[in-house]
Simulated scan of single mutants.
Amino acid sequence: MIRLRLYTTLGCHLCEQLEAVLATLCAERYRLERVEISGDDELVACYGVRIPVLVDEAGQELDRGMDPGRLAAWLSARGWLDEAAWRQLQEQLSGESAPKTAKGATLRGGRRYLG
């Protein structure tokens, strides 16, 4: 099992986004230790403007890791990326597999197209 550490703070929506994408893209079982930085001035100085920061067991960091592409590359470099899940997420993000809406319209990128 992989052990990861996430430097975060209460109410960080970017951290929540990273956790959701990590759960989707990581092919290995992992244990995530969340480290709250707000109560420690040193942690705030180190991570405050870079959260979310994901750290592997070797101490390698991915700061501002909420971007799915950067997270996928970080996981891939370690052999932990679920390639099929990544392809599916890329399709969803690009709108290629957008769900159909009523009367033949399609939804892509939050916009509805007719025909």
Rank of each mutant, 00 (worst) to 15 (best):
D40P: 14
R29C: 04
M66L: 08
E16C: 05
L93C: 11
C12T: 03
T9E: 06
G65Y: 03
I37S: 06
R64P: 02
Q92M: 12
R5L: 08
L18R: 01
T8A: 11
Q88S: 15
E61S: 01
L75Y: 07
A20S: 10
T106C: 06
A105R: 14
A23F: 08
L89F: 11
Q90S: 11
Y7N: 00
V55G: 06
R87V: 15
L71Y: 14
P68F: 15
A58I: 10
L22P: 00
C15L: 06
R111W: 15
A23Y: 12
L25K: 03
E61F: 06
C12N: 04
D82F: 05
E42Y: 08
A20N: 09
Y47I: 07
A20I: 11
A58L: 11
D67E: 13
G11N: 07
E61R: 00
R29I: 06
E61Q: 00
L71V: 13
Y47A: 03
R34A: 04
A98M: 10
R29G: 07
V55R: 14
A73N: 02
L81F: 09
V44S: 05
G39N: 08
L10S: 08
R50Y: 13
L32G: 08
H13Y: 11
Q60V: 13
A102E: 05
Q60H: 14
A105G: 14
S94H: 12
L62G: 03
A98T: 04
R111I: 15
L81W: 02
L10P: 02
V44R: 15
G11R: 04
W86L: 00
L81M: 09
P52F: 10
A98G: 15
E83L: 07
K100R: 11
E61N: 01
G95M: 08
E16F: 04
L89Q: 00
R111S: 14
L6D: 05
A72Y: 09
P52K: 01
L22W: 07
E19Y: 07
D67N: 15
E91S: 05
R108M: 08
R111E: 15
Y30I: 13
Q17R: 12
D63L: 07
A105E: 15
L18P: 00
V44P: 01
A20D: 06
L14S: 01
G69T: 03
V44N: 01
H13L: 12
L6I: 09
E57V: 14
P52I: 07
R87F: 10
D63I: 07
E57Q: 14
A45D: 02
R111N: 09
V49P: 13
W74D: 01
L89I: 10
P99C: 04
E42D: 14
S38C: 04
L43C: 08
R70G: 15
G39P: 05
T24G: 09
Y7S: 00
T106N: 08
L6N: 12
D40C: 14
Y47G: 04
E91M: 07
S38G: 03
R70L: 14
S38N: 06
K100T: 10
D56F: 04
A45M: 09
P52Q: 04
L75D: 01
I51R: 02
Y30T: 12
G79A: 05
P52W: 06
